[in-house]
Simulated scan of single mutants.
Amino acid sequence: MNDSVQPLALSTYSSDVAGEERAARDHRHDLWFKRTMFGAAMLVLILLASIAASTLWGGSLAFKTFGLDFLTSTEWDAVNNHFGALVPIYGTLVTSFLALLIAVPVSFGIAIFLTEVAPPWLRMPVASAVELLAGIPSIIYGMWGLFVFGPFMAEHLAPWINDYLGALPLVGPLFQGPPLGIGMLTAGIVLAIMITPFITSVMHEVFRSVPTTLKESAYALGGTTWEVVWDIVLPYTRSAVVGGVFLGLGRALGETMAVTFVLGNAQQFSASLLMPSSSIASIIANEFSEAYTDLHRSALIGLGFLLFVVTFFVLALARLMLMRLSRKEGL
């Protein structure tokens, strides 16, 4: 009997030792995995801080030379080394706002059409066309805007806008100007076409995530398609929709080549949307290779830092809005 108990005890002891070794090995692997993921997360923060610090250091000469005048001055004179960032900042914000104002309703309509209205045979071609638009390089949009849409704007749209919208009592000055074809309105429309596929894709995917039972219940109670969308789909996906909108805004703020082609690159401050202007990204792309003085290069790098700050605050605002929406949904 003792002979049979001893092998059993040895077998139990061996299995316990193997289990402890396996647990220790799993603990080491789990620790390595946590450290690797933590390192990846810290890498993002380090890169973000490094980019901000390097652009701030590169633009320090311009900030020290001009002070707050760098943010408030409209003069950009490379010959006399006097630089002000107000016009590029204004052009960046106005064109991005125009793009968002146009793209959000269009994206919402396309997403609702694909999710709730379109027949099955039409959904795939339209969805594929949206994805194709998202994959077109920005320089193609810029060339199309300069050679196709710009002349059409100058010949047909700009005169009509100037004659009819320019005569309105309050917003008239925004739409008064010569029919140049290039300017802030043209750049805003081209940007809207660029960011529409991104916002549409986000909205389409989140609208598809709404449980079918919720929508079928609303239809069963006699709700129309618009009532189902407004009362069921949008409240369910509100935070994700806001995130998609701000994702498109972030893309519009940093766009370079398309805006460079159609904005006009004029260092002048004008309330008219038909007049040329400049953006932070376009002025950096146009002048960085020709900046022959330290102050000029520092001013351009300082503009890059300002673009970083503007984008950071926009995305931070989006995050705060999403957090507030999440709290309301939790209530």
Rank of each mutant, 00 (worst) to 15 (best):
V206K: 12
V206M: 11
V206T: 14
V206G: 13
V206W: 12
V206Y: 13
V206C: 12
F207W: 01
R208C: 06
S209T: 12
S209E: 12
S209I: 03
S209D: 11
P211Y: 13
P211T: 04
P211L: 06
T212Q: 12
T212N: 11
T213D: 15
T213H: 15
T213F: 15
E216F: 15
E216Y: 14
Y219L: 08
Y219N: 07
Y219I: 10
A220E: 04
A220D: 05
L221D: 07
L221H: 14
T224Y: 05
T225D: 05
T225M: 06
W226G: 01
W226A: 08
W226K: 08
E227T: 06
E227W: 05
V228Y: 03
V229I: 09
V229Y: 07
V229A: 00
W230K: 15
W230E: 13
W230C: 11
I232M: 02
V233M: 10
L234K: 13
Y236I: 01
Y236M: 01
Y236P: 00
T237W: 00
T237S: 14
R238G: 02
R238Q: 06
S239K: 08
S239P: 05
S239G: 12
S239R: 07
A240L: 03
V241I: 00
V241N: 00
V241Q: 00
V242T: 10
V242P: 06
G243N: 05
G244K: 05
G244Q: 08
V245M: 13
V245T: 13
V245R: 06
F246Q: 00
F246A: 02
L247D: 04
L247A: 08
G248T: 01
G248N: 04
L249I: 01
G250K: 03
G250E: 00
G250Q: 04
A252V: 10
L253D: 08
L253Q: 09
L253P: 15
E255P: 13
E255I: 07
E255C: 10
T256N: 05
M257F: 14
M257A: 10
A258H: 11
A258N: 04
V259M: 01
F261M: 13
L263E: 02
L263C: 13
L263R: 08
G264M: 06
N265T: 13
N265E: 10
Q267F: 15
Q267V: 09
Q268L: 12
F269N: 02
F269G: 04
F269Y: 15
A271D: 03
S272V: 08
S272H: 10
L273H: 14
L273M: 12
M275K: 11
S277D: 11
S277E: 11
S277T: 15
S278T: 15
S279F: 04
A281E: 00
A281Q: 01
S282W: 08
I283E: 01
I284R: 06
I284S: 02
A285N: 09
A285Y: 07
A285L: 07
N286S: 09
N286W: 04
E287W: 05
E287D: 15
E287K: 14
E287G: 14
E287M: 09
F288A: 00
S289Y: 03
S289C: 02
E290I: 02
E290N: 08
